[in-house]
Each structure stands twice: as C-alpha cells, then as structure tokens.
Design a protein around this nucleic acid. Structure first.
Lengths: 228, 228
DNA sequence: CTCGATTATTAGCCGAGCCTAATATGAGGA
DNA sequence: TCCTCATATTAGGCTCGGCTAATAATCGAG
C-alpha cells in the first residue's frame, strides 16, 4: 500500500514542520535538519524523527545528511497553511482591531483550526487580497504564489527611491517602531546614505529622515521598478 | 506541592472533558463515566484514566463508582470554553455568512485556538450578546451564566402561547428544517394539541400549523411568562 | 589524506491520550 | 440475603511527538 496516497488529516505538528521547511528552502534548495530545529525550537533528533515520518508519508524528499525538500504534495500542504496564516492576519487586522505587531501569534494558532470554508469566507470578506498586513503575498487557494522580484533596502544604492513592499520582521516591538515611522508596505522610501561595513542606512520616509540598522535594512524588501 | 495551584494551559482534550462534564451535570449532580464516554465518543477506560488525571489536577471531584463533579476551578474552565464556543458561533453567523446549522463544528475547533483577547474582540464586535444563534446563554467573561426558567414545548399545555427561547438541537438537518418553518429563538408559538403517549405536537407558528415529534418538542425550550 | 569540528542520525526513554481485555463494584430482583 | 448484570476501574499496550546520550557522516584545515 502506498503511503503517499493515504490522506489522513495532517497534525498540527506536521503542518508546522511543512511550513518551516517551505520557508527555509527558497527556490527548492534543501533545508537542513539544524535550520528546521532552530526555526521550530525543537531538538535535532526530534527533527530527524519527524523527517523520517514525513518522507515515509511522501511529503518530503530526504537525502540523509544532505537535507530535505518538499514533494509536490508537501509543498501544496505548506502553501495551504501559509495562505491560511496570511489571510487570518489580514482578517484580524481589517475586522477585529488587531495591529500588524499583534497578529502573528493569534494566526499561528488559528491556522491549524479553521476550515477551508472559513478561510474562503474570510478571503471573500477581505475582497481576496494579494498580500497580508506585512506585505507577504497570499498564495491562491489552488497553491499558486506570486513571486515578485524584490530587493532588500540594504542593497538599494544611495540616491534611489523605491516602494516598500514587504516587511519581513516578526518581533512585535520592531514592528511597532516601523509602523510608527511609516515604514509599512506601500511606503515610498529614498535611500540617502549607506555607512560602510554593513553599517546604518539613512532614509527619507515622507518628510522625515530616519536611520536604521543594517539588519533591519535586510528585512525591508523593496520594489526598485518605481525608481524616479 | 499542590497540584491544584499549578497552571499549565489545558490541553484540547482536557477542555473537551470539562465542557462535557459541565453539560452532563445540571445543578451539580455528578456525571457518570459512561455518560461522559458516550458524549465524547471515547471508551469508558479512557474516561476513567482522564478522570484520574483531572482530579489530581484539582479540576474534578471524583468519588469512585459514583461519578464526578467539577471543582470551582474546573467549572470556571468549562464556562470559559462555553463562552468561547457560543461567541464564536454568534460571530460566524453575524459576520461570516454562517447559518445556525453549520456553525457548530467550526466553533468546536476554534474554541481551542482563539486567545482570550480575540474572544473579547468578537464579543465587542457583536455588542456583547446574551445568547448564541440557538438561544443558548453566553456566560460572562468572569464566569457567570444566566439561568432562565424555561419549559420544553412538549410540556406546554394545549392552548398556551409561548415564546421560543432555545433550540437544543445539534443535527444540521433538523436545524435547517426548524429554521425553514420559523422555529427559531424569539418565535411566538401556540400549542394547539398534544397526541397521547408522547406523540406528535401540533403548533401554530406565524400563520402556519405544524406538527412536530415529541423528541423535538423536548428540545425546544420556551418562556411561558409571555402567555396571552 | 587525515583529523578534528560540526552536523545528522540512531538508540532508548517519557508522557498524553487513546484502545481492548480482564477484574472489581454496586444495585435490583428472587 | 444473595446473585446477576450493568457500570467502573485496572492492567497492559499502542502511537505521536517530544527529549538526552551515544554514534556516525561530512567537511574543512593543515
């Protein structure tokens, strides 16, 4: 009997692993055991064990000592969770007074509990948005995710004006700070100066000049095609 | 070390047991192992085992071979879950296009995943309703539940007019039927005739006469104080 | 090419929460 | 009172998903 064709519902834990592996393997390069362990705050042996189970279920391709990749089925499941997560975040912000710094944890739990029907009702209520409050693209219900070419602010040359698209930050305090200075998806930002050796970056946002650290500059992803 | 003072978050399973026990022990009479097992679709030994763990945690009082009762702490936890469940049902019906026959399962899963903060935001969005879509009273956030004297329609004498308050029915098809004939909380109903031996009951609802089975008549709870 | 450091896997354990089979208790009829 | 039957509990086992300790594989430096 082929395990890959059996479809009991995935457990919470499995859903978390698949999502983590998706996030850790950009363009299909394999994710390492230790990266996954770190990301999920699990011991490496726990991850090894789960990897074995998931490969047997046909959700992963595992090359021992080399890392794992999602199969088509695993990828589908991961994208389903990401769609849920991002739509839930968008819904909570739009309708229930959440702010972008407080939605993550709530969505993290709800994504495992909502039905497909509820997710689609939330999507309808929102008018089927393309992105969540942080600018992260929302995969379609059939698992297609928009891939936009985007540049970390840290790599945008001084003098260039770009549009902020995604804010890949999860710490609530950082998000609150970014929101308070107008660094949200859609903001127009001009890079004024880069300090050397991965040093701070000076920006203009609206009328204000701001200086941000290099690490934050890596987490702010921009669209350079709007350069003026 | 007192187990009763330790407060790790309750598991899903524990939350379900507490809710079931609450529902099975009206005015504090003990609930039996087999009732609980039936209600939750678990084997009796599974229930015995869980009862042992929950009493050790101080959530239950267990008298072996006699049944269980919730402690104050267990009752508080149960009412918290019931508040969640009913508010979620109300929210889904009010804002996301659910109908009273489809909300139960969704709420059953969500009640374990939402935060207290989200529950209260939903309550605010609804204007702090006193009852869910089936007319079941919603406990307050501090665990007080309204106890209204209510009579099963099956016990209302012929000739009397009453207001329907609660519909204690869970099967979706029955709920759809009841909704389609106007038998919802708030409806005014006149009992026209009772057939003997727990037989069908003839009613007037609005302009229509309807005949319902005795079992349904037991699940429709009325307020007789509005008799005219 | 070998060695040491890093990373991954295996071995073996645990608790939660389910199960079935076996046993114990208690309640009602003879 | 005693016996039978329904109900409850105990015994023992399983899976999932964690863990630590021990072992194995790979990689990079010399």
């Amino acid at each position: 009997m082929s395990a890959a064709t059996t479809h009991d519902p995935l457990t919470r834990s499995v859903e978390d692993y698949l999502k983590a592996i998706y996030n850790l393997s950009p363009e299909g390069r394999p994710a390492s055991t230790s990266d996954i362990a770190n990301h999920l705050a699990r011991s490496a042996p726990s991850v090894s064990g789960m990897i074995k189970r998931l490969s047997e279920q046909g959700l992963l391709e595992h090359e021992p000592y080399r890392g794992v990749q999602l199969t088509a089925e695993g990828r589908r499941a991961a994208l389903r969770m990401i769609r849920r997560h991002r739509l839930i975040e968008a819904y909570l912000v739009a309708f229930l007074g959440y702010t972008w710094d407080t939605v993550h944890d709530e969505a993290e739990r709800l994504e495992h509990a909502v039905s497909d029907a509820l997710v689609e009702r939330m999507a309808d209520a929102l008018g089927n948005p393309g992105a969540d409050p942080h600018g992260e693209p929302i995969p379609s219900a059939d698992g297609v995710i928009e891939e936009v070419a985007v540049t970390p602010l840290a790599l945008v040359p001084a003098g260039e004006t770009v549009e902020l698209r995604r804010v890949e930050v999860t710490q609530p305090d950082r998000l609150r700070y970014l929101g308070s200075v107008g660094l949200r998806p859609g903001a127009t930002v001009t890079v004024l100066e880069h300090q050397p050796f991965e040093g701070p970056i000076t920006l203009r946002v609206g009328e204000q000049e701001r200086v941000i650290g290099y690490d934050l500059g890596q987490a702010l992803l921009c669209d350079r095609s709007v350069t003026r």
